[in-house]
Design a protein around this nucleic acid. Structure first.
Lengths: 352, 352
DNA sequence: CTGAAAGCGCTTACAG
DNA sequence: CTGAAAGCGCTTACAG
């Protein structure tokens, strides 16, 4: 019976009872082998191992966890907009969790489904919930409170300003201060803001950073900056950047520095400006945000802000893992990640 | 007791027993309300509903499924390389599954971890497994066979040629035939192949398509095409495209049409060619693959092949859902998706 | 070193 | 319309 037909797992065996009968041992013994407990005869272990290969038996996770085993599961909510930075954060986090033998449950939060997702996570008895990206602030605040009441740890990545939330985020305000200082040092005093017309907290924080940097030099945001942002939904960020750049050119008032909400808009704008005969960076400087691969493509390459995603996720892990299975910490914790300015050819001294 | 303090869920309640005691009903009754079974007094239903709000009680999914409820879970394996098309397929599929009240378990397959992932899926008693992208062919074949032996349905998206696998994929061979016909009709007879130096089945299929299209006009692949592909690992596809384009220019033998493995390489190449003083499409035509947003960015915009991802996922759903909970179908099924050529300014008639 | 018994949190016949 | 009992597939004391 236990000879050699290892190729076709007998799919009949569905429970440890059947499996134990197949091996000819008590369920208890089998369970102990499966869990690597000490004090088993090598021969017994060998028998069970071989039977697993023969039958392809996989224990039922639902019974395991019902019986008190940790679920070792973390629920991850990600925002609707699957931009490269969000995907990279998700992938990095999942990898780190898996290295610690945690499974992740991943759900995209869309308008109106966040309660359902959280309930699902709770029913799966996740040991923590992580939010990556930007969400409806009220929903998020409510979920954070509910998780707290259930003593389930949570972590909010990227969305700052949520009451009571443990947060890890790029310091977006500082990011823009750093970028502005870079441009101000080059002598720029007039700035085009491209596609910053969003009420999202992440964008507002960045506008604050811009304002702070200007204020530090005695300048006023409203006087130094201008915008021609579209009001329609953006279909393609590249196109949008080009469109806005053109609007500046046509208006006849072209600032010396263009600051875009992201790299795609920046590159679109750069193309728009170059098509209008302006030279980058001799006539205008252009800067993006996120430091995507695409930054290396235009000529000159695009100056951008790197989110340091690996570092963000590293910190996320350091903050999250110690909380799992522990009594909930009383005070919430906010960690900000230092932005990294990657200066390339698209920004330079203002023409005198 | 059941007055009004709805804000603070009493996190103590962790089981239906405790919950039933709280409401003052039998567990059976509570269970029936939770499952929406008929024949309950409205007042009873009301009582339970209110208690749920008061306590925030969420039933334990592990007990539910152990007791025989369907897990309504699908395992999704995605390839390591999280390119935009892969992410879009994943997101679309998960959305469709959720609309049918299926939960998805998502795991990235990395070299050597696929067995572990499949075991995890099996232990979670998934009702099907979906593979998105390209994987080690032997692993994939083995997993497909194992799932079959366990009567668990599966679906392979994108990876054609797996024995016994239910497959939905873009017809990559045809995609290249269509693109080649487009270029051949324009009079092109010399072709640069950019970054097709991969042994992946998806790339080989595309090379076959190129060969077929040439053969149909009495031309021979080896005589019409040339390559300067790098042997190093690619860090940045844009840079790689530019580098390869430069190699062609420096070699002094510049084909009239450049066909790239993807949009990023194509755009990099286009920039490289333009920087060398060649005009697109007057001097050279350039074509990409995937029809990403970035295609609209260069001047002229990039001709590309659209994978019709929504259609792919739609078919995936139509093929997969009917299999769930059904006896396993004997013959495997292969569906190919028609590619869509999106001709833009980067391709044009060959200079006479 | 191995086995029989209890119990995790649910649902589902089966009685009342 | 509601309740007591059995059982899903495991693990963990507790005996032998």
């Amino acid at each position: 019976m236990s000879t050699s037909q290892p190729k076709t797992p007998t799919s009949q065996i569905r429970s440890s009872t059947e499996f134990a009968r197949y091996v000819g041992l008590a369920r208890t013994t089998v369970s102990r082998v499966l869990n690597g407990q000490p004090g088993l005869k090598p021969k017994t272990i060998e028998r069970v191992k071989r039977a697993i290969e023969e039958t392809g038996f996989v224990p039922n996770a639902y019974a395991l966890h019902l019986k008190g085993k940790r679920t070792a599961t973390v629920g991850i909510c990600i925002e609707n907009l699957l931009t490269p930075p969000v995907v990279r954060k998700l992938a990095s986090l999942q990898r780190l969790l898996r290295e610690d033998n945690f499974t992740s449950l991943i759900e995209v939060i869309e308008p109106g489904n966040s309660d359902k997702v959280i309930r699902h996570f709770l029913s799966m008895r996740v040991e923590a919930v992580v939010f990556i990206g930007h969400f409806n602030e009220d929903d998020l605040t409510r979920h954070v409170a509910e998780l707290g009441a259930r003593e389930t740890p949570h972590l909010v990545i990227d969305h700052v300003g949520i009451k009571g939330a443990n947060t890890v985020s790029l310091d977006r305000t500082k990011a823009m201060r750093v970028l502005m200082d870079h441009l101000l040092d080059y002598g720029h005093r007039t700035f085009a803001l491209l596609a910053f017309n969003s009420p999202a907290r992440s964008v507002l924080d960045r506008l604050h950073g811009i304002g702070d940097a200007l204020a530090a030099r005695g300048l006023v945001l409203e006087q130094c900056t201008s915008a021609h942002d579209g009001v329609y939904p953006r279909v393609n960020d590249f196109e949008e950047g080009r469109r806005i750049a053109r609007a500046f050119v046509e208006s006849g008032k072209v600032p010396t520095a263009f600051i875009a909400v992201n790299d795609e808009v920046a590159i679109g704008a750069m193309h728009g400006l170059q098509e209008a005969g302006l030279r980058v960076p001799q006539d205008v400087s252009v800067a993006g945000f996120n430091n995507l691969d695409v930054c290396l493509m235009p000529t000159p390459a695009l100056t951008s802000i790197d989110q340091r995603i690996e570092e963000t996720i590293q910190v996320a892990q350091e903050v999250l893992l110690p909380q799992l299975g522990q009594p909930l910490r009383a005070r919430s914790l906010v960690r900000l990640i230092e932005p990294l300015l990657v200066a390339r050819g698209s920004t330079g001294p203002v023409r005198s």
